[in-house]
């Protein structure tokens, strides 16, 4: 892990405006922001760990725990809302036994809500890992989940 972080840091300058890009790269690499990463970034940018945490926890993108194997994102944009996005989310929360922002105990799924995936004309939309599924229904979603081990 330390070498990988160093490699990421080397790609960026040492000014504070690089903080968010660094965090994004770290998350891309490890899936989350670990305390050790924060420590290294802190030394590199000369910003305290607490300030880095303050910045990163502001943004919805960053997470501080290890993610599950599959990330489920339910779009709750306006178009998706009026077409039942919330029902999909509720069904997932109930079905997986977790609430938004959590990971199932078996680390299989992460559940998140997103403000808008920008596919409003195809609502309601659910994203699993990198695939976007349009015109979702409760029953189709149940079937779909089985494909993601």
């Amino acid at each position: 892990m330390p070498e990988t972080i160093e490699k990421i840091l080397k790609k960026h300058g040492r000014t504070t405006d690089e903080l968010i890009p660094i965090l994004q790269d770290v998350q891309k690499e490890f899936g989350y922001i670990a305390p050790e990463s924060v420590k290294r970034i802190s030394r590199y940018l000369k910003v305290s760990e607490n300030q880095i945490y303050g910045v990163s926890s502001f943004y919805a993108q960053f997470r501080f725990t290890e993610p599950g194997r599959h990330g489920i994102k339910v779009c709750l944009g306006t178009a998706c809302h009026v077409r039942g996005g919330a029902t999909l989310l509720e069904m997932l929360e109930r079905g997986l036994g977790i609430s938004c922002g959590q990971t199932t105990d078996d680390k299989r799924y992460d559940l998140e809500r997103v403000a808008c995936l920008g596919c409003c004309a195809l609502s309601p939309v659910v994203q699993i890992d990198r695939d976007i599924y349009s015109r979702m229904t409760v029953n189709r979603l149940t079937e779909l989940l089985k494909e993601y081990e």
Partner: peptide, 12 residues
């Protein structure tokens, strides 16, 4: 930073 839910003009 097209954040309005229900808007995708900029992305397109």
């Amino acid at each position: 930073d097209e954040g309005d839910p229900g808007a995708f003009m900029n992305r397109s």
